[in-house]
Simulated assay, not measured.
Amino acid sequence: MAEEKLLTVNVVTPDGSVYDEKTPMAVFRTTVGELGILPEHIPLLASLEIDEVRVKVPNTEGKFDEIVVNGGFVEFSDNVATVVANSAERKEDIDLERAERARKRAQERLKKARQEKDTDKLRRAEVSLRRAVNRLNVSKH
């Protein structure tokens, strides 16, 4: 039986490495849609949405590692996908209580920004809410 071809996925933030594993496939939500990368994919650079990176666990039937990313970009070349994000978190490291508190704070800021008709505060509150909801959604998979 032929050995499974693998690529490496690295997720890094200003605080350091969050994830570094080999995989037969990784899936990213970019600003233009979902992107699946297999070994030997052509080089690319893409902006990421606030979403999750899914990395297939080698030699399993459909099991994926999930990493929350808050935007950033993915660069792929030489069989290495490097994700650079301001913040990222592995699914198993998500603190549900903290994420729920962040969601509530963001909803309160959103409500206040709407009342004040402050578009700058509104945009920031919407991003904060998307980040908190993303963390909650991934933690519940």
Rank of each mutant, 00 (worst) to 15 (best):
A2W: 01
E3T: 13
K5I: 05
K5F: 01
V9T: 14
N10H: 15
N10W: 08
V12C: 08
T13L: 07
V18L: 09
V18N: 11
P24S: 04
A26N: 06
V27M: 10
F28Y: 14
R29I: 00
T30C: 11
T30I: 04
T31C: 05
G33N: 10
G33F: 01
G36E: 08
G36H: 02
P39A: 00
P39I: 02
I42P: 00
P43D: 12
A46Y: 04
E52C: 06
E52K: 15
V53P: 02
V53N: 09
V57Y: 08
P58K: 07
T60I: 11
E61Q: 13
G62F: 14
D65F: 14
D65L: 05
N70C: 05
G71W: 01
G72F: 08
F73C: 10
F73W: 09
F73K: 03
E75W: 09
F76V: 12
F76R: 01
A81Y: 04
A81F: 04
V83E: 11
V84N: 13
S87N: 13
A88Q: 09
A88L: 04
R90H: 04
R90D: 05
I94F: 10
D95C: 05
R98G: 03
R98M: 03
R98K: 14
R98H: 08
A99Y: 10
A99D: 07
E108H: 06
K112R: 15
R114T: 04
E116Q: 15
D120Y: 13
L122H: 09
L122S: 04
A125M: 09
S128F: 00
L129C: 02
A132Q: 07
A132R: 08
V133M: 14
N137K: 10
V138R: 10
H141D: 09
H141M: 01
H141L: 07
